[in-house]
Design a binder for these strands. Structure first.
Lengths: 337, 337
DNA sequence: ACGCTCAAGTGTTACGTATAACTTCCTCCT
DNA sequence: AGGAGGAAGTTATACGTAACACTTGAGCGT
């Protein structure tokens, strides 16, 4: 090694290849056609290979004024859902020469604080999921292009939004249970201030209001087995006719509802039907397997990244909700007389 | 994007405050004591606030030759385990002014490819989990300080390693089942080439070899419910005396084993005991709750980051395995006659 | 033989920051 | 009175890269 300890720079490569630094930049930047002879280009590439040259990203980013890196802000990674979102986003990003940096919001779903202190990388844009207004304004303060996932399209202050068609998912679940004959429902709602959960509550309530002879109880719990268990147990033992179906805001809550039902001696689905939302792997680990709504997390991430790329290009991002699919399994059946 | 007004630089702040750019750098870098008057410092801070100044990370990184950012390479984020590792690592990092960037290896546990193309951020170091040799050498080729998680301490080519005391965990599980009276075991092993799983197989086998009158069957499956189910079903219906206990390499596999047992009409734990390893939330969602080994993911991440900080400081990283804890729940009981 | 074009490069600069080295003014000690 | 020394700054520079503007020489048509 000529330089010894420090990392080789493009100048070192230039010296080794007997050309100027500018030539190295042209060749390695793949903009050399018609500017450098093929033989010289090959010599440069060989020298770079030989020295183990890797461009200094900090210098490149400074020179270009962009990083080709975007931030994906997600709630705490306690389920595989956001892993799928990342996978989809990263795939699309890679096709366009972008990288994706993950920032799991420390406080779970809800307000996120200072994603930039934590991810020191300079960023070209942000994809943010289920975040509250304060984090949104913190990000907007930086003038960064922003795409919001599963957020109120009318309340995002002009930021592009990409949403799953949760409304349709709730409709499908509700219709499925109504068709089976259920009339008395319990909604086990996630106790988290986020638009995506408000949509669930709103759609379910209005759907049942339209259907005569139905009743709806609502209970709230943070997304954890224990909290879901106690909330469900309390709600099911409240005086009055017991609900025959529990509609849960997500699969994890549904797992808690399973335990509550078992503790009360209720059989699933004979005595009580339970539905989830997400279609996590967990849904098939439960016994009986959970009827739920499949969300295409990867496609969600893909659309989010595509929308951000559109914003970065000055184009108008496509605006269409991502379809979801009801998956009927063993946890739902007609109510027994 | 119409980036009409460019972001303010330290020079803009200097102009607004009526000082030189150097003074701004001193004040905002908190190195102004004895170099700038308190009144001027306040004026600079106010101007920065007013303009919404944020330092250009690319420029700072170039100037300083370091980024205070490290990469955490994890397998696909399909369980909350590595979320905990990240949380622990990020907490320690933040205390030292570092940020952590997450890189979920696209191919799951096993060889990872080119973490640097994806995370364009320039990096000061890497914490890598359960990776194969080729990715390791790719990283080492960049001469980056490296800490390996749960990897062979003797085979990491001098990289620091931080490990969970998996050997002790397996020993505790085995002893627990032996004490209950079990003698015929099935090991449901993860079909993934990783040191952490080799350790499990080795310790279990040698432990039982030491104990007369015991027998061990081994079956392998990728970490998914379906694969675990079919593998377990096959193994339990093989001719010969049926095992009375299934020791699984992790909780997810255990969930598959539950389904296999149920499909064969076996009751848990009366007809067959099952154990896991991880203590995921899933363990308490299963019915009956799973006896498993609790791994302290956050502490794991903390130790990993501490080790990396030690390497970056030129110190020798502490070398101690992180203790694990057997959690006995309802899935294990004495074998019935 | 002349100017023209084109291939194949090179010289130079700027991106925004942190800091070493320098300057200027003022106070205080002897 | 005459520096010594400190407070309060400023000036200048380098980090490594990409790209614009320029140079040089050869080929070529007329």
């Amino acid at each position: 090694m000529a330089r010894g300890s420090t990392r080789p720079t493009s100048r070192d490569v230039a010296e080794a290849a007997g050309v100027s630094q500018a030539a190295v930049s042209l060749v390695l930047g793949d903009k050399w056609r018609g500017r450098v002879s093929p033989a010289t280009a090959e010599r440069v590439r060989h020298a770079a290979q030989e020295l183990g040259y890797r461009p200094n990203l900090a210098a490149r980013n400074l020179r270009l004024g962009r990083t080709r890196t975007v931030l994906l802000v997600v709630p705490a990674l306690t389920t595989e859902f956001f892993a799928g979102v990342y996978t989809g986003a990263a795939r699309v990003a890679a096709q366009h020469g972008f990288g994706v940096v993950l920032y799991p919001s420390p406080e779970g779903i809800g307000p996120a604080r200072d994603p930039f202190g934590s991810a020191q990388a300079a960023l070209d844009g942000v994809i943010a999921s289920s975040m509250a207004a304060d984090a949104l304004t913190a990000i907007r303060g930086d003038q960064l292009p922003l795409v919001m996932l599963d957020s109120d399209p009318t309340g995002s202050q002009g930021a592009a939004t990409v949403n799953l068609d949760i409304t349709d998912g709730v409709r499908q679940v509700t219709d499925h249970l109504l068709r089976l004959g259920h009339r008395r429902f319990l909604h086990l709602a996630a106790d988290i201030p986020s638009w995506t959960f408000e949509v669930r509550a709103h759609e379910l309530a209005s759907r049942l209001r339209e259907t005569p002879g139905t009743s709806l109880r609502v209970t709230r719990a943070p997304i954890s087995f224990e909290d879901a268990l106690t909330a469900t147990q309390t709600a099911l033992t409240t005086p009055g006719p017991r609900p025959t179906a529990v509609i849960c805001d997500d699969d994890k809550l549904a797992a808690g509802a399973y335990k509550a039902a078992r503790r009360l001696g209720l059989r699933i689905p004979d005595d009580i039907s339970i539905t989830g939302l997400d279609d996590l792997a967990l849904a098939r680990a439960l016994d009986p397997e959970l009827t739920t709504v499949r969300l295409d997390a990867e496609r969600f991430g893909e659309q989010g990244m595509k929308a951000l790329l559109a914003v970065l290009d000055g184009r108008t991002p496509p605006k269409e909700d991502i379809p979801v699919e009801l998956v009927v399994r063993g946890s739902t059946a007609p109510p027994n007389a």
